[in-house]
Design a protein around this nucleic acid. Structure first.
Lengths: 339, 339
DNA sequence: GCACGGTTTGCAAACGTGTGCAAAACTGCA
DNA sequence: TGCAGTTTTGCACACGTTTGCAAACCGTGC
């Protein structure tokens, strides 16, 4: 004996004494129903606890009002914020989010495949990208996709990133004018474009000028603990940096604590630390980290608007979008050379 | 000219020269198909890029393998962790998460309604609870639901919480034996059970004993900034506390910074601060907050196991589950009375 | 009473799949 | 070859909706 109790439009129609079409029409805004039958149907529906089956519906209207979200990076609080905002924004427009997690780029294709089976109307991929073949399948299926914090010239998909190279140059200029000389670059997940492009720009700038050198470049260092350990290790090396540029805020905060608490260094006098992301903790009194504020809200806006536009008009061409990041000066970098 | 290109089992069947049932069976594990036709079908499917429509499928098998997740609280990093783990765990079992956000208890019913329309197989509600009527609808629909960090005797649903009263008593005992005398209780979102129950237990213990009093009880104070301001305000009041018990870690960290940086107080000598949640930042060197470690992983396990069990066997009765929280002693509370 | 324009209504055909059932094909064996 | 037993296959119906189309209905003005 199953408690299988789903009530269908058929039963509502029977109770109300009308046809199934009538009940369908009362639940479709803008359909032609007389007020009398509408009332009858609504009463019957209420009595039975009827709720239209969204899946059966989407089968014939060819739109599920679900958008697939694949998330490949959770470490950074930054992405949580995205998740929340995406959920709220799309929910307001009558869409739901179908959420999948993927370990890395490798898992993305699987996730996308699953989402396509569920006939999602659109796809949001944060901090990862699908294979070219998979992207092509999306296109053939007519499913618009927007990449966040990733882009690829070979994939036909919208993307929103920020101008990492420019930020790299800004950081370089700041360190230079404050008189720092030996900078270390620490990268988190190798493969996340944000850090890579930024570091490339710094390297380039350093190669061009004479007075400031890149003395170390480590990668795979992600999170508070890793950062704290990394700075300790760095101090054992032959040449110690006087500025560390870090591709995630939590890592930078770990470095800050490692430098101050473990190594007893004076920040920013003896060592500068700059982060990436501007998470809430970075502004907290105990840290006051100089970092780059990623324009998450702007990025979210761009992504949402673009995806909605593509849902509206499938003919629209995908386009790359870039938001402008902003250096926020706090207390972990001094502003002028020491006297 | 639409690029509408969905390929159906019909087309695959035609290309392979078999019936539609044959292609359906090749994609249903354990069905009876000869290797020869299976091969033909697989080739045709690959050539056409066929992917079974999960929605049409679930229409007839009466199971969508989607589970609905409604999230009412995002402030605390704690919940992000839950989200991620839920996603991964269920994904591993072949389920997807359909994510909805709700501002508060008020919005939960709406979210649940929407999820039911999508015929989710199960429901996870974190940090909020549906109305009694809505819970009844879920039951009639045969959709198991598990509540996280909430419970209600009147709702027939599984729930996982932790023993907040016990933790309240533990905190009280700790403060008492360390010789603190005037405790302030600060609550975040009024309505989140965790804090309420804990504070109630502390109040009760204080009423029973003689040597320690609750001198202030504020609520609606959530997040770093709010905490930092709150402690400043407290210091203007007639009677200043010597211990603050806080219902979220970020708030407690704000209080810590407010006390040390703004008020120039010595922690833990002049003031004790205890948090709730044990977020990563709380263990960081600059803070070392004494707090209670919520057993998130255990709670997640309980929730996942219970929901899966109910999906397996719909007859199963819902049950309340409680995980045990643990006080973690760090440096924001002294361990013995001052000399 | 009748023709006429405009609304409402029900019929039936989709949407893309799974599955019971009986027919068909195959297997092994005498 | 014939036959019993087993496996494979196709038909057709079901799942719960939406929607084009034509019939039914309604009110109105002659």
């Amino acid at each position: 004996m199953k408690p299988y109790n789903k009530v269908t439009s058929h039963e509502v129609a029977a109770l109300a004494g009308v046809s199934r079409s009538a009940v369908s029409r009362t639940f479709t805004p803008g359909a032609s129903v007389s007020v009398k039958t509408r009332e009858k149907v609504e009463n019957a529906a209420r009595k039975l606890g009827y709720r239209p089956n969204a899946l059966a519906r989407s089968l014939i209207v060819r739109s599920t009002r679900m958008i697939g979200l694949v998330m490949a990076e959770w470490q950074n609080p930054f992405y949580t914020r995205m998740l929340r905002q995406f959920s709220e924004r799309f929910q307001a427009e009558g869409y739901q989010l179908l959420l999948l997690t993927s370990a890395s780029d490798a898992g993305v294709d699987d996730a996308v495949r699953r989402l396509l089976q569920y006939q999602v109307d659109g796809l949001l991929i944060v901090s990862a990208k699908p294979s070219e073949a998979m992207a092509e399948e999306c296109e053939r299926a007519g499913t618009p996709v927007v990449l966040i914090n990733r882009h690829s010239p070979v994939i036909r998909a919208s993307s929103v990133t920020c101008d990492n190279a420019q930020i790299g140059r800004d950081i370089f200029a700041m360190l230079q004018s404050a008189g720092y000389r030996r900078v270390a670059l620490v990268l988190g997940d190798p493969g996340v474009l944000t850090g890579i492009e930024r570091n490339a720009a710094i390297n380039e700038a350093a190669a061009a000028g004479k007075d400031i050198r890149v003395v170390a470049e480590i990668s795979g260092c992600l999170g508070y603990e890793a950062g704290r350990q990394a700075v300790i290790d760095m101090w054992k090396a032959a040449e110690r940096p006087d500025a560390i540029v870090c591709s995630s805020d939590p890592t930078a905060l770990g470095i800050l604590d490692g430098a101050r608490l473990d190594l007893k260094l004076a920040v920013p006098e003896e060592l500068a630390v700059v982060g990436l992301g501007d998470i809430p903790q970075s502004s907290w009194g105990a840290y006051r980290l100089t970092t780059v504020h990623l324009p998450v809200d702007e990025m979210i806006n761009l992504a949402v608007e673009d995806l909605l536009a593509h849902l509206e008009d499938p003919q629209l061409e995908p386009r790359p979008m870039t938001a402008r990041a902003r250096l926020v000066h706090r207390d972990s970098v001094r502003v002028r050379p020491e006297a």
